Computed example of a mutant assay.
Amino acid sequence: MSPQPSESFEVPTVDITPYVQGGGADDRAKVARAIDDACSRVGFIQILGHGIPDTVIDGLTAAVDDFFGLPMEVKREYRVVGANRGYSPPKSESLSLSLGVESATRMNDFFEAYNVGTEARSFPDLDLSEDDYGLNLWPDVPGFEDRVQAYYAEAGRVARTLTRIFADALGQPSEFFAGLTDHSIDVLRMNNYALPEGTVDLDGDLTGMGEHTDFGILTVLWADRVEGLQVLGRDGIWHDVSPLPGALLVNLGDLTARITDDHWMSTLHRVKPPVVDGRIRRRRSVAYFHDGNVDAVVSTLPEYAGPNPYEPVLVRDHIKAKLAGSRHGKKNTAAEREAARVLAAAGETRS
């Protein structure tokens, strides 16, 4: 008999207003304790009090709609081969391979995306390579760049606020994460689940976005309140997750799990096609990936190290291996712990 989802599973909700608006020490300590609890039990958090104006989010979603509403032949003009920038058409990626796991359906992920991010020239005093940071390609869509940049700045502020909370929650100096992220290779990925709306008979288990963990420090996610996102709980069951009204979803990436030797969880998640009552519904999401400095070495904190801690890793090497899996079809052989969890959820063992 298949295991049943635990009724106790939830994504904890944390209001970070005391950090955003300069609350007192007691209020900030309460937030830090709640974050520690959420990160150690689930690895996903519903964030309220983030302070992003509704007008900025409305501008972002309008920009997303304007771009993805273009004809496919126009969108394909913005594809950048070999870079984490520009347009990715449907079925051009396979995120399960970033963990070294092949999807049972052998199908690439059925979503389209557009990526922008921090450029090397954003840090003129540092000798950074465009091979690591990339140049943005902005589509010729009126107001697209301005609206996306406005949200990008706000999401980055939220990410940096969260790393200050993380430092407090882990008992580290308040600027602990700043040393790992002061020239972080951040990326904003706008996703559109591109199956046409309407009634559909699915032939097999179609994948919207395959099971994966995120690569870096943390991810700030805006998403429609449409079914599709699923999180793998400690019970080995995939649970549906939808953002609360006005909330952002935040999840930890692999590098934070390494820092805490999995005391804090880089949680596996996936997106199933948004099929409700036999009909496909459109789903959009926008993820801000706060991934760390390309030249930083991430090690486990001594006070969290278990008997078999993670080996130190250069952020550049870690990101490169993950992207080689998702975009170039090469299994990531350095993701043994994550791959084991995927296979256990599928009732398989790894040879």
Rank of each mutant, 00 (worst) to 15 (best):
P5N: 03
S8C: 00
I16S: 04
V20F: 05
Q21D: 07
G22K: 06
G22M: 08
A25D: 15
A25S: 15
A32S: 15
L48G: 06
G49Q: 04
H50Q: 03
D54M: 03
I57L: 14
T61I: 14
A62D: 15
A62N: 14
V64D: 03
D65N: 08
G69W: 01
K75W: 08
E77Q: 15
G86E: 04
S94I: 15
F111E: 07
A113I: 12
N115A: 08
T118A: 11
R121N: 13
E130G: 00
G134L: 03
P142I: 08
A150N: 13
E154V: 02
A155W: 08
A159V: 10
T161H: 05
F166L: 15
A169I: 10
G171A: 07
N191A: 13
N192R: 03
T199M: 02
G208W: 04
G210W: 13
F215R: 04
G216I: 04
G216Y: 02
I217A: 04
D235R: 10
H239F: 13
G246V: 09
L249C: 09
L255Y: 05
M265S: 13
S266R: 11
T267P: 11
I280W: 02
R282D: 01
T300Y: 05
L301T: 10
G306V: 11
P307F: 00
P309S: 02
Y310H: 13
V313I: 13
G329L: 13
N332A: 01
R337S: 09
E338M: 10
E338H: 09
A345I: 14
R350G: 00
S351E: 10
